[in-house]
Computed example of a mutant assay.
Amino acid sequence: MSNYIFEIQTEIIKRLPMKSLVQFRSVLKQWKSLIDSSQLIAEYQQNTRLQQHLLVRTDFFKYDCVSFLDNDTYPHQKVSITVPESVPNQIVGCSQGLFCFYDFHNAAVIWNPSIRKSVDVVVPGPFDGRFDNDNVGFGVCPRTLDPILVKIPTEYPIKNLDNTTWVVDVFRLSLGVWKSLCMDLPTWCITSTCSQVVIDKFIYWHVFERMSGYNLIISFDMISEEFTEIRLPDSLSGGNDDTDMYICKLKESLVVLQVDQTEFYGDCGVWMMDNGDPKSFENIYSIKSNIPDGSIQNVLEFNRNGEVIVVMTNEEKEHELFVYEPISQHVNHLGISAKRPSFFVGSYTGTLLLLDH
């Protein structure tokens, strides 16, 4: 009978809102053990009722953030969130509801804004006090729900162009240690633009060939630990001083933003990769920089409905966040402004990951 009651309690617990679930850990030791178990955390992660949020940071040098529910109610429902003081300024990316920060001085922090919990990670690098400019990527493996850091050289040494072996460092939080992998990657020099996206089991980076200036995308498979090169259409790959390129995610699809820089910030072409097929990039529409309501200064993120979070400048030279509907070109103000254009906007889903750390 006691087992039957416990099973009923377990099913009830799994249906609780996340805030209540975290609070119930202090009611009974048995409940805490259950809630902290990797099995319940994994099952809760697959819960389709989990809400999606938008995390907004207005200033690169401040730790205060605002979180919106990504539904029809925002921007009316917003919550202030204070980032832990140990968190570096540079946001690497977000995956499965976790954010990763890195400061290029061998320190990374993995942070869960939903339960206000973080884990510090020491990143291997120069131990003589030098500045380490290697690129660090972050993702959560969808199969194991294990947070992963990947450190790859930002530039391939020119003197070793005949040697195709790269040393890549990989960290899995469940193991708590770094391991070095020798990868046979292309011989050209890569300089990362620090633009990364996580979709399913892949971490994507936008990079360019230093020798030719061509744009391309590389991906890291968090399960097989293999890199793959994704060649872009000619209209995207060619080096062009008049355009900038960024990558982001739109409804679980990889998107390339191609920005015309003949002016300060021109029109932005949106290219989507269909079903993970690197040969299927299609220009789905363009974001017009000059619209009836003003001028768009930057494109930051896509929300759940596929609308675009953009930065615009008002008459007082303040930078403000708006939601832009690409077909109608209509914008809605999010009620957030800043003196400097150093916004970060990241889409995330509530999660219990890190609860057992």
Rank of each mutant, 00 (worst) to 15 (best):
I223P: 01
T349P: 07
V299Y: 07
Q90N: 15
N47H: 00
V308H: 12
I217W: 07
F171W: 14
K249T: 15
E225W: 08
G139L: 03
T313I: 14
S192K: 09
I296L: 09
S253L: 07
Y348L: 14
S347F: 04
D36C: 12
Q90W: 13
M18P: 02
M272T: 07
Q9P: 00
G306R: 03
R304K: 13
H206N: 09
F264Q: 08
A108W: 01
Y204S: 01
W271Q: 12
H357L: 04
M18G: 10
C194M: 04
L334R: 12
H319P: 04
Y324N: 08
G139P: 01
I35R: 03
S80P: 05
N112Q: 13
G350C: 10
G238Q: 06
V167M: 06
S38M: 06
G335E: 02
V56P: 00
C268F: 05
D244T: 11
V27Q: 01
I309C: 13
I8A: 02
Q39E: 15
A42V: 08
T48K: 15
F60K: 08
R231A: 06
F99S: 01
M211G: 06
T10W: 03
L353H: 05
M18N: 05
E7A: 12
V150K: 01
N283A: 07
V66R: 12
E315H: 10
H206P: 00
P75H: 02
K179C: 12
L250E: 06
Q261L: 15
V109K: 01
Q9Y: 04
N71W: 03
S347N: 02
L54C: 09
V167A: 07
L352P: 08
R231G: 10
Q329D: 08
S86D: 14
P153G: 11
S224H: 05
V79G: 00
R15L: 12
H319D: 01
G238D: 03
V150T: 10
V259K: 15
V140C: 09
W166C: 05
S20W: 05
L55V: 14
F101Y: 14
W178Y: 11
N275I: 04
M183W: 10
K62L: 11
E316S: 12
C65K: 01
V109H: 10
S342D: 09
P186S: 04
H53Y: 12
R304H: 11
F101Q: 01
D184G: 04
F104R: 14
K201P: 08
R304Y: 07
P326I: 11
P186L: 06
L50E: 10
A107D: 13
K78F: 08
N332F: 03
E43R: 13
D36L: 10
T228F: 08
W111Y: 15
R304E: 12
S20Q: 08
S174T: 08
V310P: 06
P113H: 09
G276M: 08
D260F: 11
T154V: 04
S37R: 08
V255E: 02
S195T: 13
R116C: 14
D134A: 11
Y348W: 14
K339I: 04
G346P: 05
Q30A: 14
C189N: 10
I287A: 05
G137T: 07
D128Y: 10
D134C: 09
